[in-house]
């Protein structure tokens, strides 16, 4: 069984600008993770995250672009190489009078029980999240 998460956030910027931040490698590196992303359907990009203080190599999330409809909708196949879970992230943009409403859905997230059965592979991305929140 899997779970889905839905987020909605309004930005006081036009859709074209928000879209650029979602499909530009440099921008994604600023707000999401270091990556070699290109907005091309079928291409798989590597997003990396530090694994914390165990001196290991960076963790990898493979992101394949499954759908691309600028500046309205983009679908990623999101696969954490450590965990083997395959999930999907859907970005939907909608122009509002004063900016853009972004909806983000992350679907296919394993339930608690499955997550436990994945064993010791706790995602180091949470380490970077921690650093970001502390910083």
């Amino acid at each position: 069984m899997t779970l889905s998460l839905d987020f909605e956030k309004h930005f006081p910027h036009p859709p074209a600008k928000v879209w650029r931040a979602l499909v530009t490698s440099e921008a994604l590196a600023q707000w999401l993770m270091p990556n070699d992303f290109e907005p091309v359907i079928g291409r798989t990009a590597r997003f990396t995250y530090p694994r914390g203080d165990c001196g290991q190599e960076d963790g990898v999330v493979l992101v394949e672009v499954e759908a691309l409809d600028p500046p309205v909708r983009m679908v990623w196949r999101w696969q954490n190489a450590d965990l083997g879970e395959t999930t999907r992230v859907v970005f939907s943009l909608e122009a509002t009078g004063d900016g853009t409403r972004l909806r983000l859905s992350h679907t296919g997230i394993p339930t608690e029980q499955e997550a436990r059965s994945l064993g010791g592979g706790w995602p180091g991305k949470l380490e970077s999240l921690g650093q970001t929140l502390r910083g």
């Binding site: 779970l3 998460l5 987020f7 956030k9 930005f11 931040a21 600023q30 707000w31 999401l32 972004l102 983000l104 992350h106 997230i109 394993p110 339930t111 608690e112 499955e114 997550a115 436990r116 995602p123 991305k125 949470l126 999240l129 970001t132 929140l133």
Partner: peptide, 18 residues
Amino acid sequence: HDWAGQYRAFWENRLERL
């Protein structure tokens, strides 16, 4: 152990950064 909770916190943080 709340896996979904970890993703929730992750995206909440990343959208703030965006």
